[in-house]
Structure formats: structure tokens, C-alpha cells
Design a protein around this nucleic acid. Sequence first.
DNA 1: GGCCGATTTTGACGTACGTACGATCAAACA
DNA 2: TGTTTGATCGTACGTACGTCAAAATCGGCC
Lengths: 188, 188
Amino acid sequence: MSQREDLLAGARACLVEKGYHRTTARDIAAVSGSHLASIGYHFGSKDALMNLAALQAQNEWGDAIEAAVRAGAGAGPAQRLRIALEELISSLPRHRELVVATMQAYAQAEFDEGIRHALADAGESARRALAAMLLDRDPGDLDAETVAGVGGAVYATVVGLAVQSVLAPESLPTGEQAAAALRTLTCE
Amino acid sequence: MSQREDLLAGARACLVEKGYHRTTARDIAAVSGSHLASIGYHFGSKDALMNLAALQAQNEWGDAIEAAVRAGAGAGPAQRLRIALEELISSLPRHRELVVATMQAYAQAEFDEGIRHALADAGESARRALAAMLLDRDPGDLDAETVAGVGGAVYATVVGLAVQSVLAPESLPTGEQAAAALRTLTCE
DNA sequence: GGCCGATTTTGACGTACGTACGATCAAACA
DNA sequence: TGTTTGATCGTACGTACGTCAAAATCGGCC
């Protein structure tokens, strides 16, 4: 593995273990077994490296979300959301590191245009993909209102559950509980 | 105003303007018009001050959420969620600073036991309160399953929408869109 | 007025930070 | 083999950091 890849992996590890704020350039060099000065050479600055590592983790988690929700795609409309939530919620502990890194990215987004743009773009495509899967429609067919409504509501729930899985994993609802709750609130 | 209060206000301002990572003790002193060494005297350390300021903002935002959702409490079961979401989503831009500060707290939670506990506690009581308002029941009457299911689902959605309001406010759904989307997904 | 605890102010200490610079190295190439 | 190019390494610079000790000031209370 090149030092460039080592540094990216090390930066992600530090992001998860110490957080954005407490990670120093020397930490990354030590964890990755690379040389301090290579950070500047390969990435320009420590922050650029950290941001890249955080965005990379966010993208991987995005893929994991889509994979989880796709599990419900085969079922009928009534079961689809329940299965998707079930799959998603049970996958959260497994992807804890990705979630933690993604939350670091969220926190930086307000202060770094690049991160904010990348996250906004990823969010837009995630909302469209999620809406398409849950409605069993083609992503290209969806109008903006559906993407905003269905995609936005689902994506918000996913992100909120992820936050909760970091803060208090023991009080996450099960997928069935969450699906039943939403049905109660909307259909009663 | 005492320096203690000034420092708390300054820390929150820095949290919103520069983020946790980029705020220095000297920034806080300058913004608050207090003296550098007062941070140690009143709070023990800079991080302790930052954490307190972040948690304080989170609590205020929690109150704002409850106030918004309570707006739907008078309506019938069918309208309640829609009105609550409407009110909540339209309040997000107004409370942007609180939301940003809260996200800083979320990002630190993984690395600071105190923050994590405080956020977990606040989340638990928020879930209970939200479930009670949306079901029009007494908070004390709710069993754990209902709190986890209804409260957890709603709170997750709220947190997710808040994150979205920071990353890409222009693509937030309206309350009506979100409520209709959830109805479509659960009742169809 | 004079004392005493609580607060504010001053100033500085030791350190750990990010980054830059030049040397060194390894491989590709002519 | 001599040269070039990209990568890695050793190091040190300048600075900005958080914290602390001690002096100065304030505010009640006798």
C-alpha cells in the first residue's frame, strides 16, 4: 500500500477513535506508519486529508444504506418500509465506524464549503434512490416533489436513527416498532 | 452580566461561527470581552466550557422542538403529525444557530462521556414527550415500547431534518410533503 | 474603615502544533 | 550508466495553544 492510501486509512481510524478535533497530523502519521511530511505532499494539508477521509466514509455509509433499504424492494408496498427499516437499524451497529466518521463530516460541513457541497450532493442522490426503492419506481421517473417528500422524509429518518445509534444505541427502536409507529401516526 | 455568563455566550457564538475544532480559548475570551484566564477559573478548562455551551444550546433546541410539535396537539389525530412537521420544519431556519451548535455536540459525544450521557438523557425525555404529544396521551402513561417506537421514530425524523436543514436547507421537504410521504409509505 | 472571600487581570511558561525545506531514495528511461 | 521524476524521510522553524500562579480589584460584612 502506498503512503497515500495508508494516510487515508489512518486518518479515518483517527477520525473514529479520537474525532476530528483531537486528531493531530502526528497521530495520523503514527497510526498509518507513514511519515509526517507525506501528508503535505499527498494532500496539501492535514485538514484536506481529514476531510477526504470523512467524505470517503460518508460515501461508504451511503452505499450501506442503499443496500439495506434495497432488501425491502422485493416485498409488497405494505411490508417494504418495515423490512427496509428492520435491515437498516440492524445494520447500524455493524457500521458504527462509518456513522461516527460521517457525523464528524456533518459537524465540519457548516465551516467547509467543500464538505457541505459534497454532503449536499450525496444527500440529493440518496433521497432520490431511497424514494425510488421504496416506491418501486425508476429513479429517473420521480419528480422533485416526490424526491423531496418521500426521499427527504426517509433520509431524515435514516440519519436521525444513525445519530441515535451513536448517542444511545440501546434505545433504538426495532424496525417493526418504527414502522408500526409511523403507521399509527399517519393512518389512525 | 458576569464573566461566567459572558464566556458561556461567547463560547456558543464561537461554536456556531467557527465550530468546535477551530475555536480557541483566546477566541472565546475576545468574543465575550472577558479574560483568557477566567475560563479556567469558572469552568476548569476550555473544553469543559465548550461542552457546557453546546449542551445548553441543545437543551434550548429541545424546548423549541417541543413547542413546535405542541402546535399540533389541539388537532385531530389525522392532522396532528402534519401540523407538527409543518411547524417544526418552518422553525428550523429560525433556530439554525441552535441546530449548528447541537450538531457540534453530537460530533463530540462519541469522545466525551459527559456529553454523551447528557444527550442520551435529553433524547430519552424528548422521545417520551414527543410520543405523548402526538398520541395525545399522558407522558407517564406510555410504556417503553411506545416511547421507543413512536418517540424514536419521530425524534429520528426531527434530528434528520435538522441535519438536512444545515447541509441543504433548500431541499427540505415541507411539512405537508413529509406527512403525505409517510402516509403513502405506511398506508398504501 | 478594614478584613476576607470571590472574582478579575496580568503575564508568562512549557509544549505541541502544522508546515516548509532540503536531502535521500528508488525506479523508469534514454 | 547518467539523468530525471516522484516519493519518502529527517528536521526544525515559527507560532499559537491551554493552563497556571500570583497580583490586583471588587463586594459584603463586622
